[in-house]
Computed example of a mutant assay.
Amino acid sequence: MGQALPKPALRPFLAEDTPVLAAIFAASVEELTGDDYSEAQQQAWASAADDEAALGKRLAGQLTLIATLQNSPVGFASLKGADHIDMLYVHPGAAGQGVASMLMEALEKLAGGRGARALTVDASDNATEFFLKRGYVANQRNTVTVNGEWLANTTMQKKLGDNAAPGVPT
């Protein structure tokens, strides 16, 4: 009989998490996005984690949740304002184990509890399918410049709960 895999747990962001989250960010970009972005694009994107102080400040200024396996961080997600998912990154070693889904379920519930009627995300090309499966709808394609490289993403939205009246824009 096989052993059960440990279940991920969630906790709030702490400032001392920043170095490990920067490493998760870089590893996620470098190892999970190769089918959708060139090596130069990946390097430019991953370099956003080089300034740990700026990353820590960004995460501290948002509602940031950390997913852990056996008390070690393996992923994180952040909610900017009441209704925009700013970051969602999972370490490649934990990818496919439900970590991202657990983080998103928690952010969706928290956002709904705070009165958000919908959530938006600018999903990278490799994350678009994940968000589609969670009920997000693609609204528009975007191109952003990151450290001199152009990267494409898709703005997606998901209506939360049944609190939105039919025909009323959110």
Rank of each mutant, 00 (worst) to 15 (best):
Ala4Thr: 13
Pro8Trp: 03
Pro8Asn: 03
Ala9Gly: 12
Ala9Glu: 13
Leu10Ile: 03
Leu10Lys: 02
Pro12Phe: 11
Pro12Asp: 13
Phe13Val: 01
Leu14Cys: 14
Leu14Ser: 13
Leu14Met: 13
Ala15Asn: 11
Ala15Arg: 14
Ala15Thr: 09
Asp17Arg: 08
Thr18Lys: 08
Thr18Ile: 04
Pro19Leu: 05
Val20Asp: 03
Leu21Arg: 05
Ala22Ile: 00
Ala23Thr: 11
Ala23Asp: 13
Phe25Asp: 06
Ala26Gly: 07
Ala27Glu: 11
Ala27Pro: 10
Ser28Met: 05
Ser28Gly: 08
Val29Ser: 12
Glu30His: 12
Glu30Asp: 14
Glu30Pro: 01
Glu30Thr: 14
Glu30Met: 15
Leu32Trp: 10
Thr33Gln: 14
Asp36Phe: 15
Asp36Arg: 07
Tyr37Asp: 01
Tyr37Asn: 04
Tyr37Thr: 00
Ser38Trp: 05
Ser38Gln: 06
Ser38Met: 06
Gln41Pro: 05
Gln41Cys: 03
Gln42Leu: 15
Trp45Thr: 05
Trp45Leu: 09
Ala48Leu: 15
Ala48His: 10
Ala49Phe: 01
Asp50Met: 09
Asp50Asn: 15
Glu52Met: 08
Ala53Glu: 14
Ala53Cys: 08
Ala54Asn: 01
Leu55Asn: 05
Leu55Lys: 03
Leu55Arg: 02
Gly56Ala: 07
Gly56Met: 07
Lys57Gln: 14
Lys57Met: 08
Lys57Pro: 00
Lys57Val: 06
Gly61Ala: 11
Thr64Met: 04
Thr64Trp: 03
Thr64Val: 10
Leu65Asn: 04
Ala67Glu: 00
Thr68His: 11
Thr68Phe: 12
Thr68Glu: 14
Thr68Met: 10
Leu69Asp: 05
Leu69Pro: 07
Gln70Tyr: 04
Ser72Asp: 12
Pro73Gly: 03
Pro73Trp: 11
Val74His: 07
Val74Met: 08
Gly75Glu: 10
Gly75Asn: 06
Phe76Gly: 06
Phe76Val: 04
Phe76Gln: 06
Leu79Phe: 08
Leu79Asn: 05
Lys80Trp: 11
Lys80Met: 11
Gly81Arg: 12
Ala82Glu: 10
Asp83Leu: 04
Asp83Met: 03
His84Thr: 10
His84Arg: 15
Ile85Lys: 04
Asp86His: 04
Asp86Tyr: 03
Leu88Pro: 10
Val90Met: 01
His91Ser: 12
His91Phe: 02
His91Asn: 00
Pro92His: 07
Gly93Tyr: 03
Ala94Lys: 04
Ala95Phe: 14
Gly98Val: 08
Gly98Gln: 02
Val99His: 02
Val99Asn: 00
Val99Phe: 00
Val99Ala: 00
Val99Leu: 00
Ser101Val: 04
Met102Cys: 13
Met102His: 07
Glu105Leu: 13
Leu107Val: 01
Glu108Leu: 00
Leu110Pro: 00
Ala111Asn: 06
Ala111Arg: 02
Gly112Phe: 13
Arg114Asn: 14
Ala118Thr: 08
Leu119Trp: 03
Thr120Asp: 00
Val121Cys: 02
Ala123Trp: 10
Ser124Pro: 02
Asn126Gly: 06
Ala127Met: 09
Glu129Cys: 09
Phe130Val: 00
Phe130Lys: 07
